[in-house]
């Protein structure tokens, strides 16, 4: 496996002296290049802190995160001051509140912000901005005022702003939490599309289990430690561990699991409504034909 992000004995505490409670404690993990990983946990579990450490917004109290950057052509260290600019260029981050991450009044100017900071020539910025806006489906809105857009559209502008930076990995820090269902669907579609057609490594921080179900891999964080790590199916199967950490499997998973636990001849773990419906129909059919 080729990793893009690797953490070693990673710890972080919000107390300066490091004696206080650790928000993140002694973590070792790797994120595979080109993968889609969801990090889930309840509020205050440390999941957002991990995200902020990976893109260089926070500096580890101890331990290290290594970023294998293709654009820099070497392995970067997050705690190294000389590397931090390249870390941010390689690993982009979309935040939770769409209002607080847009810099400019006009959509295309906002998307241009990162390439402008990189000193890219104007003609090339134009190309990057246009293709980023097309990727999020907002090209027609390029001259609109950012504050007149809906929450979902603002978040898509924020995503375009990161895409225009040509990152190798993008972290979404609860980026759907403040959106309505429609906005959330749009953003999730773009996230999948980014991985599938642009080959960008995606890390999604969330507490919505149905969003996490779309990932290749789920890491469950509780009290700053990773307590479950595996494919969505493997993680959803351990519904008791999940509910201990204040998380819930989707209702579709719950329903099928209940039927399974009561002795029905049915799949043990399903991920979404489609799978659940299929499993239930199959079970009903078996019974009916008997």
């Amino acid at each position: 496996m080729e990793y893009i992000i690797k953490s070693e004995a990673l710890s972080f505490s919000y107390d300066e002296d490091g004696n206080g409670k650790k928000t993140v404690e002694n973590l070792d993990f790797q994120i595979e290049r080109g993968s889609f990983t969801a990090i889930i946990g309840h509020n205050g579990s440390g999941k957002s802190t991990i995200a902020k450490l990976m893109c260089g917004v926070l500096e580890p109290s101890s331990g290290e995160i290594y970023i294998d950057s293709k654009s820099a052509g070497r392995i970067l260290r997050v705690s190294c001051d000389e590397d931090i600019f390249d870390v941010r260029k390689t690993v982009g981050m979309v935040f939770q509140n769409p209002d607080n991450q847009l810099v400019a009044t006009v959509v295309e100017e906002d998307v241009a912000f990162a390439p402008e900071n990189l000193g890219v020539p104007s003609a090339e910025i134009r190309k990057k901005v246009d293709s980023a806006l097309k990727a999020v489906g907002l090209y027609e809105y390029r001259t609109h005022d950012t504050h007149k857009l809906s929450g979902g559209q603002k978040q898509r502008v924020a995503i375009a702003g990161i895409l225009a930076m040509s990152p190798e990995c993008v972290i979404f820090d609860e980026s759907t939490a403040m959106l309505d269902p429609r906005g959330r669907d749009d953003v999730m579609k773009i996230i999948k599309e980014m991985r599938d057609s642009l080959g960008i490594t995606v890390i999604l921080i969330t507490h919505y289990m149905n969003e996490a179900a779309l990932a290749d891999r789920i890491m469950v964080v509780n009290d700053g430690k990773i307590i479950l790590d595996g494919s969505p199916r493997n993680v959803f199967e351990k519904n008791e561990v999940l509910s201990e950490c204040g998380l819930e499997v989707p209702q579709s998973t719950e329903l099928v699991r209940k039927l399974y636990d009561s002795g029905a001849e049915i799949t043990k773990t399903v991920l979404d409504t489609e799978e659940a419906a299929q499993a239930i129909v199959d079970a009903l059919e078996k019974k009916y034909k008997k």
Binding site: V57, F85, R88, N97, E116, N117, I125, V129
Partner: peptide, 26 residues
């Protein structure tokens, strides 16, 4: 709170002052 978040977001988008900055619109 907004200022704090915006500052983090701007840093993530590589803002480092006016030096070497180009513009979309000339």
């Amino acid at each position: 709170r907004r200022a704090d978040e915006l500052a983090a977001a701007m840093e993530c988008r590589l803002y480092h002052g006016g030096d070497g900055r180009t513009r979309l619109k000339v």
